[in-house]
Computed example of a mutant assay.
Amino acid sequence: MTDEEIAVKLTVLEQETKSAKHRLDDLEVQNQAIQDLALSVKELTINMTRMMEEQEKQGKDIDALKAEPAKRWKDSTKAIFNAVLGAIGTAIGGGLLYVIARSIIK
């Protein structure tokens, strides 16, 4: 092998080395972009999980708020019913006492 052939081969190897270095540099940039994207996806997943938990909590709160008027109405009707029954019971009891008192006085 002559000096000229060696020089040509060295030149070719230098060009290939430069080309490979440029490709490695590009790959490093791409690799960093992929890592950044993976971290962003991880953060997004964490945030979405928190958001879903918050939505579930808000859904339960909304259900409780929706049920409140119905509960109040039920409690009110129960109170009115008990008051009416109490009034009827009092009237019957008072009437019985009146009848008993009248029968004792005679």
Score class of each variant (00 low, 15 high):
T2F: 02
L65S: 10
V12Q: 08
L65G: 01
N31E: 12
G93C: 07
K71F: 04
Q30C: 03
G94D: 00
S40G: 15
K57V: 03
G93D: 05
L96A: 15
D3T: 03
A20E: 11
S19L: 09
A67I: 03
D26L: 10
G95Q: 02
A64V: 10
K106Q: 14
M1Q: 09
K71H: 10
A87T: 12
K66N: 11
I104S: 13
N47F: 02
I34F: 07
Q35W: 11
A83C: 11
K42T: 07
Q58R: 11
I92P: 02
T45W: 01
S103N: 15
G94E: 00
T90V: 07
L13S: 12
L97T: 07
E16A: 09
F81G: 04
Q30T: 05
D75I: 03
K9F: 00
T2P: 02
I62F: 01
V8L: 07
K18E: 15
D63E: 15
A91G: 08
I100V: 15
T11W: 02
K78I: 06
A7L: 09
K78D: 12
G93N: 07
K71Q: 12
I6V: 14
V12E: 12
A33Y: 06
D63P: 00
L44Y: 09
M51A: 11
D61K: 13
P69W: 02
G95L: 03
F81H: 10
M51N: 09
G93Q: 02
E28L: 11
I100L: 15
L27W: 08
D36L: 05
H22V: 05
L97Y: 06
A64N: 14
K66A: 08
V12M: 05
N47L: 08
L97K: 04
D25Q: 06
I104T: 14
A83V: 07
D25M: 03
T90H: 04
S103I: 14
E54Y: 00
S19C: 07
A91K: 03
G95V: 01
A83W: 08
M1H: 09
E54N: 03
E53Y: 00
N47D: 12
L13E: 13
E5L: 07
Q30Y: 02
K78Y: 07
E16V: 03
D61P: 00
K74N: 03
K60D: 06
E5S: 07
Q15C: 05
L39E: 15
W73R: 00
I34K: 11
T45R: 08
R23L: 10
G89N: 08
Q15K: 13
H22K: 13
L85I: 10
L10S: 06
A87M: 10
I105P: 01
T17G: 05
V99F: 08
E54H: 01
W73T: 02
V29I: 14
